[in-house]
Design a protein around this nucleic acid. Structure first.
Lengths: 332, 332
DNA sequence: ACCCTGTTTTGAAACGATTCAATTATGAAT
DNA sequence: ATTCATAATTGAATCGTTTCAAAACAGGGT
């Protein structure tokens, strides 16, 4: 159907080897020949078949980025960072979204293995380290983003979530809040767990303060709204006077539910801190205090680590940890 | 390095053809043999090489989705719709983001051509129809999303942006606003142009009302904020009393700038209508009136159209147009 | 025994690039 | 003229699958 390297060779009066060289090592070919072959390529509309290229050459230019919630702007920013870095490095990034399904997560990993991608950037949802180990043995390195390796087996780029949780909670305590609720989940997601852990450790400095945990099924706006409504239904005396939300989406959902009702003031009755500092936190109904993570920089860093690991498979895992930053706005 | 179909064949005591059949047409192979081969595959950790598969079989299972702003939740929703549909159809979607760069847009199209993807879903940024035509001739169909084909050459899934613009503007007029500003850009993006067109046509019913256009460089929160500040700097008498923003991101940016200043009330002094009805519109500082598009459904529909076109290349282009819906909230 | 009809299985021939050892051209130096 | 070193070109072998015509097998029915 479409022209192959052989057709080009025939038409240009050279051998297939020369055509391939024009494509991949133009320096080895005389300038005249390069020009002639390129003209023929244009005339015939030849387009190199990447499957054949990859089969023979053995290396892919594609890097996969696997996240569990592409709707979260935090991941969109992270992806952009990775993509920008990839473009300058000559790689291509494909983004896949598992929508918080372990099944999909594994099935995408299978796919990437069949495709022999050059490497994987993953913000894991389930317990995939064993699978990633197998991939590594197979020759496909992974970098964990927004999470550290459980057993030091992988390089990672993350933010100190324990510190973040602690900063957020300290801030609330400092504002004289004493009945704090942590809203987020599921709790087996490490990011969520660590943020909670940080919150707990901050609580220790204030023995008379209490922390309750309201677990959600996902860290989404919808779940936040759900919890918000359940807070409205609560007896006023029992209500917390502050909330630390596991991420901004949950925080925004809470805000929607609480503020829409009109009889709960933020931060008057309840102060709220979110996490991620997404763009929309600024323009929220009550501009949201949040913990900022350098999302694009994280994506960029992860890609660079991966690049090194891909070209030098014997490397020791490295761990880059960024520090989170408290951004104070009206919600506290 | 890794086991091939030949290794499996050898180890299992069958021919390579049989191994391939176990993989692709298990019905043709006796149950015993299937079981034996599958065990060997597991033992050897064989993973099919997709490049080889695609080279020989000639067809790819991959569909590309190319958008110009992955940070816009509208596109994230659209992508999710397409992904979900793809999974059930046995396809895989890879998402690529051009960040509003024509150069990147073309370079991704080149890449997809080399990869012989099964088809392309694209929300075009620049004038890519000629390029898409070439791809079609080459055997790669495209579906336009969120935009119709200029010359009827391609199937498309879109929302009637002219109607949307008109609905939004009528709503403002009905609220007795007479000095309306359209904020968005660049104006050569068809979506923006059409929304403006709709606004203009709605204006005709109110000759004494005026429409000014404040063009932005991109439809982002940042640009919205920039325009917002320039409005603040304006003489109060000259200020518009209503804004129709080309999308919700711009509207949220405007809100941030206007409301933060404190001396402009929304909707008191200026009413605002956005476009897309993203999740965050609800939880905005002033919940945003917006024009809703069925984003996930659009993605799903686009994928289905593509699937049909991929298996039957002679099809006439079809055009699916959804109707936009006005969602009224506090900002008007 | 033999024929016939399905089922299974086989294995060589693609697919379209890249690679690399071998060959040929080029031209400067003697 | 001849030699030699270097540059440019060749083309067969290879990557790991799938395909498909042909061969082998199984098991009734006569």
């Amino acid at each position: 159907m479409s022209a192959s390297v052989k057709d080009v060779a025939l038409q240009a009066g050279v051998s297939v080897g020369t055509v391939s060289n024009v494509l991949n090592h133009p320096g080895r070919v005389s300038p005249d020949t390069v020009k002639r072959v390129q003209k023929t390529i244009a005339d015939l509309g030849f387009v190199r078949n990447d499957a054949a290229r990859q089969l023979r050459a053995g290396d892919s230019r594609t890097i996969a980025l696997l996240v569990f919630d592409a709707a979260n702007p935090f991941f969109a920013d992270l992806a952009r960072g990775a993509e920008d870095a990839a473009t300058t490095e000559g790689y291509q990034v494909i983004v896949a979204n598992t929508s918080e399904s372990l099944e999909r997560e594994l099935s995408y990993l299978d796919l990437f293995e069949e495709q022999r991608v050059r490497g994987i950037l993953i913000s894991p949802y389930g317990d995939v380290e064993p699978r990633l180990h197998a991939l590594k043995k197979f020759g496909i390195p992974s970098i964990l983003v927004d999470r550290v390796s459980e057993n030091q087996g992988f390089s990672s780029v993350s933010v100190d979530d324990v510190a973040g949780g602690s900063i957020a909670t300290e801030h609330l305590l400092q504002k004289n809040r004493r009945k704090i609720a942590f809203v987020g989940g599921p709790l087996d997601i490490p990011q969520v767990r660590d943020r909670l852990l940080g919150a707990r450790s901050a609580m220790e400095s204030q023995p008379e303060a209490s922390l309750i945990v309201l677990e959600t099924l996902a860290t989404t706006v919808l779940e936040g709204r759900r919890v918000g409504h359940s807070l409205l239904a609560m007896d006023e005396a029992d209500r917390p006077d502050a909330i630390f939300a596991a991420n901004d989406l949950v925080a925004l959902g809470l805000l929607q539910a609480l503020v829409a009702a009109g009889d709960i003031a933020v931060p008057g009755d309840i102060a709220i801190v979110g996490y991620d500092d997404i763009d929309f936190a600024t323009s929220a109904i009550v501009p949201l205090t949040s913990i900022r993570q350098p999302s694009a920089l994280m994506g960029e860093t992860a890609l660079k680590l991966l690049k090194e690991e891909a070209s030098n498979s014997g490397m020791k895992p490295r761990k880059v940890v960024f520090q989170p930053e408290l951004i104070i706005r009206s919600s506290t």
